[in-house]
Design a protein around this nucleic acid. Sequence first.
DNA 1: CATGAATGAGCCTTCATTCAT
DNA 2: CATGAATGAAGGCTCATTCAT
Lengths: 230, 230, 230, 230
Amino acid sequence: MTERDTRNAPRGRLDKRQAIIAAALRVFAREGYGQASLDTIAAEAGVAKPTIYNHLGGKENLFRHVLAEIAARSNAKTLAALQTFPTDPQELRDHLNTVGLRLAECFVDEQSSALRRLLHAEIARFPDLFDVVLDSGPNQATEALAGRLARLANAGYLTIEDPIRAARQFVALLTDELPAMTALGTRPINPDDLERAVTAGVDTFLRAFATPTDAPADPPAREAVGPLPG
Amino acid sequence: MTERDTRNAPRGRLDKRQAIIAAALRVFAREGYGQASLDTIAAEAGVAKPTIYNHLGGKENLFRHVLAEIAARSNAKTLAALQTFPTDPQELRDHLNTVGLRLAECFVDEQSSALRRLLHAEIARFPDLFDVVLDSGPNQATEALAGRLARLANAGYLTIEDPIRAARQFVALLTDELPAMTALGTRPINPDDLERAVTAGVDTFLRAFATPTDAPADPPAREAVGPLPG
Amino acid sequence: MTERDTRNAPRGRLDKRQAIIAAALRVFAREGYGQASLDTIAAEAGVAKPTIYNHLGGKENLFRHVLAEIAARSNAKTLAALQTFPTDPQELRDHLNTVGLRLAECFVDEQSSALRRLLHAEIARFPDLFDVVLDSGPNQATEALAGRLARLANAGYLTIEDPIRAARQFVALLTDELPAMTALGTRPINPDDLERAVTAGVDTFLRAFATPTDAPADPPAREAVGPLPG
Amino acid sequence: MTERDTRNAPRGRLDKRQAIIAAALRVFAREGYGQASLDTIAAEAGVAKPTIYNHLGGKENLFRHVLAEIAARSNAKTLAALQTFPTDPQELRDHLNTVGLRLAECFVDEQSSALRRLLHAEIARFPDLFDVVLDSGPNQATEALAGRLARLANAGYLTIEDPIRAARQFVALLTDELPAMTALGTRPINPDDLERAVTAGVDTFLRAFATPTDAPADPPAREAVGPLPG
DNA sequence: CATGAATGAGCCTTCATTCAT
DNA sequence: CATGAATGAAGGCTCATTCAT
């Protein structure tokens, strides 16, 4: 007995919540917390206003849920982008460019940008949200990235003392120009421009952290993935 | 004998405009554009509400004036911080640390932070403000900084291809950790922490751009980091 | 045993719309569009102010609905007054006096007067309303009246070339003195005065349009300003 | 180099009052009492707002002065139009058409129409103004017109019992269609249409009041209120 | 007197929230 | 649970009026 045929209407029993959050996400991102009106959100979600109060209580709570949702999505995207981090020594620059581009794409992603704007806008009203989002997002990504960089360092391709810091600086160098180029995420960016920005960041990163290759190389011969070598 | 404002000042002063902008600046920074109420601003400025409309027209215009004001102040501060940029070769790292600290202090400055938050918050409603502020602030600072860096490069102490990019990256590396450490500018930062962050940024910057001093002199006749040479 | 309003009637009635329109009608008529305040209307209707916005949108729309309502009522009243128009030749003057009195009563009716005042007052702001009201009211009445007069003309009792014009002139002669006598409808009129005014109008109308009764026809044997001496 | 301000400024010593009243007249006529703002009036008069309070006290008083002014002008115009009333028997219809056209032109005059609209609009707020205007305007005109008609009656060309009533009815028949044709005075009227309306009114008036000319003469010999004998 | 500046009051409108169904 | 209807509170803006110059 599948309740499939009740797709449309009766489905709403429970995932109206999803519709509400999705609509709220759009509206909040578009108009900000203060100017966003529950009427608009309700209309855009196709539900009545009190339904919002039934599923989520009030505007403030709705906002928290929305932010948590975007943060989770952005985080997932970013972690996915790091999944394919190169473990292969050769073509280090290319690999960094590739993963850097993925990260930059996450950075300029519409929802990620909206999240940043909303955080900036409402941190005064919701001081706690900042840490919540930070922990559920960038911090995890930084840590993951730091791990990858540490591996490369261990493999001898990079010279890194503090991987966390290096990870942060990698991202800083990658995303350096993006806010100005996208008007804080409100204007789309030309893919070529994005790639150029990434290349510039990676370039400087390598100038700072690439292990000099004067010695004809023969890198530490280890599989590189080996964390914490012996 | 300036009758500044010690006068009985009961009514009709001309500098109420200043009071209004100052109050608006505080209130907008504290509550954001949407939630800030003209009642609050008027009360905080010690004027009646219509006085705001006499001096500046409406909420939107007031906001624009306020943003222009903060942007101008922040820009002035930043340019002042760059004024004393070292042109003297010795102690390059110390000098960069010093000026970096000044820049970082500008970055975490309360008004500067508020400006960043307001821009993020309201860029959707005031798309034009972003470019205005950018041109009247960061862009000028970046250019000034780029000039200083170019001089150092000319003197052989740094190896820089694109001074504008280097300036941007310098700032990016300096301010890298500050948003997280100050909760987007809403929490004061420990001076030691600030210095540590600056030091870290300068360190990486020098790793990337300092001319190798093995050969004490004759500036790096190399292509520098010629991107992806052969 | 009508549960008129003895019901607890605490909230959420549907006929609040009627209450709002009724109250708005009173307030607009009393204070004019510009000075009428939605607070007053809401209070007088026993509803909260936003309820007005739920049922009818905004002040302007409310005004239009109110005017349409009065126009419709006035029109209905006037057409009813014409329903009993005499088709019977004898006692033509009496019949005209009777129907003239009915029309004059419609003219001095409180709501009809208020409608005229509001139209005059706000025609600059609502230029379209004039034609709307005209078509939904006076024009219909004039046409109906013209039909009745034409029938009398056909029957030989009146000599009328252009029935529409005659109808208009009939009304003009009837209502001639009423604005001055009622202070544009703001002061009640003595029924005797009203009747006198009507009689005077009918008299002149008959002098202009009554078919000469040279044929024996027992003319209006009364002296009464007798035109057409004979 | 322009002596612009010498022109109107110093002259303003005393007739700023005139400028204010003229501007107020325009603004009140255009926007009505309620919506007219003293700011607009002051701007249109080229004076500062308090100047209005110096010359005339407050909005209400200004309105009274303005209405008195328009009423006086309209009255003067109307009386002037009656000045040339025919006393000469021949061509009675043409003469009535001529003077009727003049009266109708007074009726559709912009200021006269505005006066009527303002009176309708604000009679509730200024109940006394109605009688003031009536006495200073229409009543005088009616009386003057009645005198002329009485003279014609005395001369045997018209058969009139009550000249005041006849005068009122003459005007009523003349102006019958004008409100509808001019949208209460807000739309200009085609001169031909105006003439047609007047002709129609005069026609009916003559049907009602013209002495039958079968027996060419022996006028009713009554004095009939005839003022201005001779 | 004339003016620029200031103000208290008020209005139209909208919002987040809650009953009652 | 979901909804239509209703509401208290508040916001932005404007106005008629008054000081102080």
